[in-house]
């Protein structure tokens, strides 16, 4: 099992951390966005052999982030992905496709601030609520049924 190391950092510390990992010869294993309320959480994962460390950083929508792809060229895929799916703005990246890497049909589909994402989440939550309701009902009925079965079985035995 990989070590689960998560370090919370601020935007102004990012450059220093990345330079230090690069100097020590660590590899950039992953860069991904996810949404936390109305902010975007960026996760940088660095690996060297069995060691793995993750940097967590919260940024505002539209805030400019220094890109890591000049140091780690393999990050150009992740940066374009994060900017297209979450609307994160990277500064000084190796290649900026300007929304034509994945070419999503709606802008920033995975950022909760975008309208389609909100609709999607609302429908997903409604479905979840309905299902929970159903499950409760189902569980009750199931219980009742089991009881009935039990009662039936007693005289047989």
């Amino acid at each position: 099992m990989d070590p689960q190391v998560f370090i919370d950092i601020q935007l102004d510390e990012l450059k220093g951390h990345i330079a230090s990992y690069h100097e020590r010869g660590w590899r950039l294993a992953n860069l991904c966005g996810s949404s936390v309320d109305d902010k975007v959480e960026l996760l940088y994962s660095f690996a060297q052999g069995p060691e793995l460390e993750n940097l967590r950083m919260l940024v505002d929508n539209g805030q400019k982030i220094p890109a890591v792809s000049p140091l780690y060229p393999n990050a150009f895929v992740f940066e374009n992905e994060a900017s297209e799916l979450y609307g994160v703005v990277f500064e000084g990246g190796l290649v900026d496709y300007g929304g034509r890497f994945y070419s999503p049909s709606v802008p920033t589909p995975m950022n909760p601030a975008s309208l389609p994402a909100q609709e999607y989440l609302a429908s997903a939550r409604a479905a979840a609520d309905a299902e929970d309701e159903q499950e409760k009902q189902g569980a009750e009925e199931q219980g009742a049924e089991e009881q009935e079965e039990g009662e039936k079985e007693v005289p047989r035995g």
């Binding site: 294993a29 991904c32 996810s34 996760l43 393999n74 150009f76 895929v77 992740f78 997903a124 979840a128």
Partner: peptide
């Protein structure tokens, strides 16, 4: 329901 699930596949690393 998970909040986020991310897969970074080997091929996206190899593109560069």
């Amino acid at each position: 329901y998970l909040e986020r699930f991310r897969i970074r596949t080997p091929s996206s690393d190899n593109l560069a």
